[in-house]
Write a protein that binds this DNA or RNA. Structure first.
Lengths: 339, 339
DNA sequence: ACTGGCACTCGAAACGCGGGAGTGCCAACA
DNA sequence: TGTTGGCACTCCCGCGTTTCGAGTGCCAGT
């Protein structure tokens, strides 16, 4: 039903609309692209495309703009991810290599993504579950309050405060510290929880309540539920969304405040090489019906550590954006693998 | 030159304009406030106020709006900081008390400030310089890469990676760790640097380059230059700035990305009890000429730890905003003092 | 010193009106 | 059957004009 030329027309419409943000008509279309047919023919094709739901017109006797379905077809079938130039790649690589710790990697990544794509960038911190324990530290803050610090193989540092309810002997703290480290260091976080389960039993009964409390907190830190950290950047790019402030910009700004929403937007971390594109109404929030999300997982080789991506108007330049997201994800993975 | 009634008029103008965001005329003024005089009289007063530079009219035959000088006079002389209600205070207190660590305190504070003031909130992390060393940890990540973790008395955790250039014996790491802790724990960060200076000399010459590298990194972490962390929240409140998107919202969004700018905006941390208000052009960035900053220092008793505040349009409700900022700063100080 | 009255100003909203980009349809043509 | 030029039609957009009214400044009167 959609022959080659109709697809060409759709592609041309998407490209033009993305470039100009104005409804595109048959005349301007044949002018700008060399389609080799007359405007009248294009009009017929447009009528079909509209009937099929790929394009629409804001009002009678205006040009056409792509629908969400149109963009979907475009990214699936009509476009190829546009790779970055060599110099861009070089720039990414050196900029990321300058990071001093994990936090810095994430901050730089956000900034980079936002700058390249000129959209709002979102980067999820590497999850704990897949990494292993590098070190556990127990520090006495006050006699009744301990600070637990967990350092993972990805360089992430997780800290928790434990209220003990009663004074804790420094001797016991030292004992705990050494025992925790000998039993946990090098273990995957997922395996570590089972080891932790039996730990209290190896202590004298009087100390067990305290040890249990500690263990509970550690397991909580391991399983990492409830707090998935996220970094956001490039909000200033929202100013390029065009007018209709209330409908386009506000919901995005609100979403950026709610990290839970952002996590849902980024979606599940699948394979590091797969790009996820959610277009308009495809994403789980109605208020964001005019925005698209381009996301991908990053991490070592086959294992996904976390997700990163961008949020932008549906009428974005998908090929370039996807190329940028993919490239950044790759380089971050690389940097993290080296660490 | 400005008698009592003229000041009353100015106050009324500011209050009305803040409430409605529309130029206020003589008629509406006497209607809404009981000034006890006729519109004509008010008009005369307005003429004087305008001549003195406290108010202006957007165009002939429109109402008046306050100038920056007008707002300045208002906050300095014509208004009192509005204290929060008991229930609000209660809410703040309990919400902040729920924090589990320093990061959480800061995150909650930002959220709180943004929510109460309905403005963009900025909170600077407690600076290191005034706090003391709780613990130093050295962890081997790879044979040639060490991770330094510094835990301060404020609960802040600072991490740095040190590239050693050559393999490091685990024995040496353990030695370093214990020596660092014995010599530093409990010391003020400012004092700690001098102790660190002589540390390399106590090691055998062959190890000194490595130790020096470590020490340099630590001192860097102590003095904390170049990286003052900041948390931002409530960007969604920018949508209430009114129209003129390009001029009002964009510069703020851009500033929020640049933490260096934000630090300058917050200004020097003075006394914890003093509120700093920068109105319009008074702040150091021309692009932010339509925005005001309300900031204050927080920290224990007499010593300022860091600064927090809000950024909003010049036509904000100063009394309430100032009350909220002051209250939040107080409660944060309290929470941190308890830790 | 305050007030009522009055003429004046000037932006905002309402209205009307081409111009033009774009469409759909149809008849003609390859 | 698919393509094309022609043509009438639609309706948004931009523009100038008008009207409306809130607000002002000034002045004379109390």
């Amino acid at each position: 039903m959609l022959d080659e030329r109709k697809l060409d027309v759709l592609r041309a419409i998407v490209e033009d609309y993305v470039a100009t943000h104005e409804p595109v008509g048959s005349k301007t279309l044949v002018d700008r692209h060399s389609l080799g047919v007359s405007p009248a023919t294009v009009r017929n094709d447009m009528a079909v495309l509209e009937e099929e739901g790929y394009i629409t017109q804001p009002h009678t006797s205006a040009g056409r703009i792509p629908t969400d379905a149109g963009y979907r077809l475009f990214v699936d079938k009509l476009s190829t991810v546009k790779p970055l130039s060599a110099t861009e790649k070089k720039a990414i690589s050196t900029f990321l290599a300058g990071a001093v710790d994990l936090d810095d990697v994430v901050r730089r990544t956000v900034r980079l993504l936002a700058q390249i794509t000129r959209q709002v960038a979102i980067v999820q911190y590497p999850t704990l579950t897949r990494s292993s324990v590098r070190h556990v530290e127990v520090v006495t803050m006050t006699p009744r309050r301990l600070l637990l610090v967990l350092i993972t193989s990805t360089g992430r540092v997780e800290q928790r405060i434990v209220e003990t309810g009663e004074d804790v002997a420094e001797q016991l703290v030292a004992d705990l510290r050494s025992r925790l480290n000998t039993s946990l260091t090098g273990k995957r976080l997922t395996d570590a929880t089972s080891v932790l389960g039996v730990l209290p039993d190896t202590f004298p009964p009087v100390d067990r309540p305290l040890v249990s409390a500690l263990v509970t907190t550690l397991i909580e830190a391991f399983t990492d539920e409830g707090e998935q950290r996220i970094a956001v950047g490039g909000a200033a790019n929202l100013t390029r969304y065009g007018d209709d402030f209330e409908r386009n910009v506000k919901p995005v700004l609100e979403a950026l405040e709610e990290h839970v929403i952002l996590l849902k937007l980024l979606g599940e971390a699948t394979h590091p090489r797969t790009l996820t594109v959610r277009i308009g109404h495809e994403n789980p929030y109605e208020e964001l019906a005019t925005t698209s999300v381009v996301a991908t997982a990053y991490g070592s080789k086959s294992e996904a550590l976390a997700t990163l991506g961008i949020v932008g108007p549906t009428h974005m330049d998908y090929p370039s954006t996807m190329g940028a997201v993919r490239a950044v994800a790759r380089y971050v993975s690389q940097i993290l693998a080296d660490s």
